[in-house]
Write a protein that binds this DNA or RNA. Structure first.
Lengths: 193, 193
DNA sequence: CGCGACGTTGATTTGCCTCAACGATTGTGG
DNA sequence: CCACAATCGTTGAGGCAAATCAACGTCGCG
């Protein structure tokens, strides 16, 4: 299990044995069945998870009761209950499994331990955060400038593998359109081809 | 000049004199007149700026030629040409001054120096990044779930001081509506009162 | 002073939502 | 193992929020 994370981290730099040991002692494996929750919004806890196998998603429910998917997390992605592991107390997101999933869990204390004790982890975290911010900026600009069809096409190009694995209505939720609209967009797209 | 940044950083922890010295040697003051550009999208460089006095904004221009404001930066805010100071080469954003501005500039090398040599800077940067991610997530969810009026009201509540200082059409650009729509929303709002 | 930038208001269009109905697929219990 | 329910995607009709297009007043600045 840990090996998958180690491989991921070593895209930055090789990890000395001591760091790998620290990693092992800090992360806790967890399995989730399809549909099972990792965390519910409002629960007090502070975890992040690295997906070794399977597929997780994070979403919020707004005041109108509507679901909005914030992030998908297939293999080799980190996902967390809040934007980054930070100091707040309550999880703003729901996270559940779309498929059977093997994940590695880390809590706030563990995160701090690794930030202090594992340079490779710290570097990877920093880089990952930068990438995350860039992706979010892109999504913001797109939600302002692009119509539904353009957003769909861009998602297809950027994350083709995710499109395959996700039910269409969840993709619609991520893109910010209704399932009906996405269905019509896809119809149009196939006709053109 | 530096004092403003020092005060900002010391919200985390007091800075030893050596760290303050490092700060001084790394940051370069710069003045921008109203309307002047700090950076244009596409230029090769990698800077961030801390606004001591004045007001900056970052924006993109999409394929349709439309402007979208990504961030406003009044006093005591950091702003950068790309999401975080990272490793890419080209600035995706335009940054210019809405008012006469005193800023402190830092480049990628300086950032790395401080990350390594100033624990307080590093801690502040990490915390700031977390906050930034949280704010962006909120903006994403809002663009998906709230209509124009709700987004306007929320902005008013969250950043009342910014509303005062920004031309209305720029606020519209940030919120993702046309100036006409924002004008109508404001009219309605004043009538209700 | 005169021009351009900015905000306002009106008329029209449009992209997307809502509501509704219906097949196909999945899975669940009798 | 079949029957029925639930979930999911599709299609159609109608409505609404916001964009577009257009015209006009006002203010500030060169």
């Amino acid at each position: 299990m840990i090996e998958a994370l180690q491989t991921y981290l070593e895209r930055i730099a090789p990890m000395p044995a001591a760091e790998v040991e620290l990693l092992k002692s800090t992360l806790r494996p967890r399995q989730l069945k399809k549909g099972e929750f990792m965390i519910r919004a409002g629960e007090i806890s502070r975890h992040a998870a690295f997906v070794v196998r399977g597929f997780l998603r994070a979403y919020v429910i707004d005041e109108k009761g509507k679901e909005h998917i914030v992030q998908f997390a297939p293999e080799n992605w980190w996902i967390s209950e809040s934007p980054g592991i930070s100091t707040d107390q309550r999880a703003p997101y729901f996270i559940d499994a779309l498929e059977y999933t093997d994940a590695l869990m880390i809590d706030l204390a563990g995160h701090k331990t690794l930030m202090a004790g594992s340079p490779v982890y710290a570097a990877s975290f920093g880089e990952g955060t930068q990438r995350k911010v860039a992706a979010k900026d892109k999504r913001i600009v797109q939600s302002l400038s692009a119509d539904a069809e353009e957003r769909y096409r861009d998602f297809m190009e950027t994350y083709p593998s995710i499109v395959q694995r996700v039910p269409q209505h969840m993709l619609a939720s991520y893109l910010g359109v209704t399932p009906e609209t996405l269905s019509r967009i896809r119809k149009k797209a196939t006709q053109k081809k």
